[in-house]
């Protein structure tokens, strides 16, 4: 899988101040760590960046690419900052990714010209004028809108990463099925395209010590349904191992849950049982509660 590291983020307690104060050290040491862990792209999330957005984006892009030979994923709502990042980006190791273009007219009008001009990849975020899609079909409609604009702009389909918008399991559990169902529709709709998602949102609000297993399990599930890439916590080495196919046992165990094969829990280790319970939770076979692993 293509791994996009989520960790260079203005919300972080170490990275945030470094971005604001233009202090390269913490950003570069994080970037090196993420590359070592196996990330393919580094997401550069500078937030809404209402003030000084372009300067901040340019600084972070150059700072990161000084130490890491990787393409970046530029993450901001500020269109000028996005363009500054695209301009500053060194394409020697691959084109950058615009994160993201929503299926809203004003966002598409502003960002498609940039994707065209800089020949970048982009994340097509399935978030429409009316907000979050409620099921797979609404996701399909939004994808069709973005697909039409992609064709109009003459951008090849393989530069598009469709993002079904992952939502937290503790609040809208059943809606996660809309993401997996959409993943099954995508190859028919846009066979050349890729897919990605902001994976960690699935565990947002779950107990802090249980977030990793939720993220890891949902990654396996989405991959089973065809996901090609994910934006994820690249400090979690276990999820990197899963993304890079170094943990096939867990993957095949979760595959059994998805295929509803009988599983004898008594024969599994505690860690394996936890993956099975979490997979059942994410497949909506059991109703979410914070204590799901204890049941």
């Amino acid at each position: 899988m293509i791994v996009i590291a989520e960790n260079i983020n203005i919300m972080s307690k170490t990275i945030g101040p470094a971005m604001r104060e233009k202090d390269p050290k913490p950003i570069q040491s994080m970037a090196v760590k993420l590359a070592e862990n196996g990330a393919d792209y580094l997401d550069i999330n500078i937030g809404p960046a209402r003030k000084g957005g372009p300067e901040m984006m340019e600084f972070v892009v150059k700072t990161v690419q000084q130490v890491v030979k990787k393409p970046l994923c530029l993450d901001t709502m500020n269109v000028e900052a996005m363009e500054a990042g695209l301009k500053a980006h060194n394409n020697q190791w691959g084109a950058p990714i615009i994160n993201s273009i929503m299926a809203r007219p004003e966002r598409m009008d502003a960002l498609f010209p940039l994707a065209q001009k800089y020949q970048s990849n982009f994340i097509a975020l399935l978030y429409g004028p009316e907000g979050l899609p409620r099921d797979a079909n609404e996701r399909g409609e939004l994808a069709a809108t973005l697909q039409a604009r992609t064709m109009e702009a003459g951008i090849p389909e393989d530069r598009v990463f469709y993002d079904p918008v992952v939502i937290p399991v503790n609040s809208q559990q059943q809606q996660l099925l809309g993401c997996t169902e959409f993943m099954m529709m995508l190859p028919d709709m846009a066979p050349e395209s890729k897919s990605t998602c902001g994976l960690s949102n699935v565990s947002n609000g779950a107990p802090e010590n249980l977030r990793d297993i939720v993220n890891q399990t949902y990654l396996c599930i989405l991959r089973h349904y065809g996901l090609k890439s994910a934006i994820l916590d690249s400090l979690d080495k276990r999820i990197l191992a899963i993304a890079k196919d170094k943990n096939p046992e867990i993957d095949s165990l979760i595959g059994k849950v998805i295929d509803r094969e009988p599983i004898d829990l008594a024969k599994l280790s505690k860690a394996e049982v936890d993956y099975v319970k979490t997979a059942r939770l994410l497949q909506s076979e059991t109703l979410y509660s914070d204590s799901w692993l204890e049941l």
């Binding site: 503790n170 609040s171 559990q173 109703l287 979410y288 509660s289 914070d290 204590s291 204890e294 049941l295």
Partner: peptide, 14 residues
């Protein structure tokens, strides 16, 4: 909230 309802029942059981 269905999830919090379930959680409270678990806590009472515990």
């Amino acid at each position: 909230d269905i999830n919090l309802a379930k959680q409270l029942n678990i806590l009472l059981g515990n």
